[in-house]
Amino acid sequence: MRTLPMKKLLVSGAIALAALSAGAAAIAAGTEEHPPKRQWHFQGPFGTYDRAAAQRGYQVYAEVCAACHSLQLLAYRNLMELGLTESQVKGLIKDIVVPDINDDGQPIERPARLSDHFKKPFPNELAAAAANNGKAPPDLSVIVKARVNGPDYIHGLLTGYVPYDKLTPQQIKDFAVTKDDNFNRYFPGHKIAMAPPLADDKVTYADGTKATTDQEASDVVEFLAWASEPHMESRKRTGVRVVLFLLAMAGFMYAVKRMVWSDKH
């Protein structure tokens, strides 16, 4: 009987292994549930931020998310870009104290100023990890841009928790879920360390909006989208002006071309 050379055997084995891996990935992807697609005010070439929603989103962040998640790239003065006045922002941060160093080089705490960056919930990453079962919560400054379909994913994550008593026996078996686990439809692997952060009436909105879980999630996504790209609107306006300029220039150059070559035909 004829035998294959060792090189061909190795190549065949590699192809078979790749096929098995692709099949396993396809099976895994088939069980993954994707969050529903939503229409966001800030999406599209002419999209803008809903400032009322973003202001409510800041309230959700400040009252719920800020206990664990930082926003290192934002300063408090940036909140004025959401349509808040200087006095309103000062009112929002009047109870916040931040660490500092006095003139003698000694550590102190003082009231937050507009120029301060958002206060970190933990002094360092090790402290954050120690307080959260060994894993530090991620900074949210660019979380919307860092995720594929970030707005939909974050909204789905915040609203995708399923209580243990609502799980099917098959889900409990397939994902080895216990009563101490947090099951989330849209989190990879479905078991997530973060307990459900939102609930109906978790916050009392200053503008009187009814605070359902879906509303809170939508508002905090609007705020985090703005935090991830606060200059998006000016960028889009510049882009529209450039496109209009190029269209006008193209029309002008076409007219010049016709005028120059008109006597050649």
Results as ranks from 00 to 15, higher is better:
residue 13 G to M: 11
residue 233 E to F: 08
residue 191 K to Y: 05
residue 172 I to H: 10
residue 214 D to G: 00
residue 244 L to M: 01
residue 178 T to P: 02
residue 114 L to A: 00
residue 197 P to K: 09
residue 60 V to H: 03
residue 94 K to Y: 14
residue 16 A to F: 13
residue 31 T to D: 00
residue 172 I to G: 05
residue 100 D to R: 09
residue 216 E to S: 15
residue 112 A to G: 04
residue 175 F to P: 01
residue 210 K to L: 14
residue 227 A to L: 10
residue 26 A to Y: 09
residue 194 M to F: 15
residue 166 K to V: 06
residue 51 R to E: 01
residue 183 F to H: 09
residue 193 A to K: 14
residue 221 V to Y: 07
residue 121 P to T: 10
residue 264 K to R: 15
residue 163 P to S: 02
residue 51 R to W: 06
residue 242 V to I: 15
residue 191 K to M: 03
residue 56 R to K: 02
residue 183 F to W: 05
residue 102 N to T: 02
residue 131 A to S: 07
residue 175 F to Y: 12
residue 217 A to H: 08
residue 259 M to C: 11
residue 120 K to Q: 01
residue 173 K to L: 07
residue 232 M to S: 13
residue 62 A to W: 08
residue 119 K to E: 04
residue 27 I to S: 12
residue 162 V to G: 02
residue 61 Y to K: 10
residue 82 L to W: 12
residue 181 D to K: 11
residue 141 S to A: 15
residue 180 D to C: 08
residue 121 P to A: 13
residue 36 P to W: 01
residue 32 E to Q: 13
residue 234 S to E: 11
residue 20 L to V: 15
residue 222 E to D: 11
residue 10 L to P: 10
residue 186 Y to E: 00
residue 106 Q to R: 15
residue 88 Q to M: 06
residue 201 D to L: 04
residue 111 P to T: 11
residue 171 Q to V: 00
residue 171 Q to S: 10
residue 155 H to V: 04
residue 220 V to P: 06
residue 147 R to P: 04
residue 37 K to T: 08
residue 146 A to K: 14
residue 196 P to L: 00
residue 40 W to N: 01
residue 4 L to C: 14
residue 45 P to G: 07
residue 227 A to M: 01
residue 230 P to T: 07
residue 244 L to V: 05
residue 84 L to G: 05
residue 58 Y to P: 04
residue 201 D to V: 09
residue 255 A to Q: 11
residue 41 H to P: 03
residue 153 Y to E: 03
residue 115 S to E: 13
residue 55 Q to W: 02
residue 231 H to M: 14
residue 25 A to N: 11
residue 225 A to G: 08
residue 135 K to T: 08
residue 98 V to M: 02
residue 228 S to D: 02
residue 13 G to C: 11
residue 206 A to C: 00
residue 67 A to Q: 10
residue 87 S to A: 10
residue 144 V to P: 02
residue 213 T to G: 06
residue 247 L to V: 12
residue 129 A to E: 12
residue 60 V to E: 00
residue 251 G to S: 07
residue 199 A to W: 00
residue 78 N to E: 06
residue 4 L to I: 12
residue 134 G to H: 00
residue 51 R to H: 09
residue 229 E to M: 10
residue 52 A to N: 04
residue 238 T to F: 13
residue 18 A to E: 00
residue 94 K to R: 15
residue 152 D to S: 05
residue 147 R to C: 13
residue 34 H to Y: 07
residue 6 M to H: 13
residue 8 K to S: 15
residue 30 G to C: 08
residue 42 F to T: 12
residue 131 A to T: 10
residue 57 G to W: 06
residue 129 A to M: 08
residue 43 Q to C: 06
residue 192 I to C: 13
residue 131 A to H: 13
residue 62 A to S: 07
residue 38 R to V: 11
residue 106 Q to S: 11
residue 157 L to Q: 04
residue 119 K to L: 12
residue 152 D to C: 10
residue 94 K to T: 15
residue 199 A to K: 03
residue 144 V to M: 09
residue 244 L to W: 05
residue 129 A to N: 05
residue 153 Y to V: 08
residue 53 A to C: 03
residue 107 P to R: 06
residue 252 F to H: 10
residue 199 A to R: 02
residue 179 K to R: 14
residue 175 F to I: 05
residue 70 S to C: 01
residue 183 F to D: 04
residue 194 M to D: 12
residue 84 L to V: 06
residue 176 A to Q: 14
residue 142 V to M: 06
residue 62 A to G: 04
residue 114 L to S: 01
residue 164 Y to G: 14
residue 155 H to L: 12
residue 255 A to G: 09
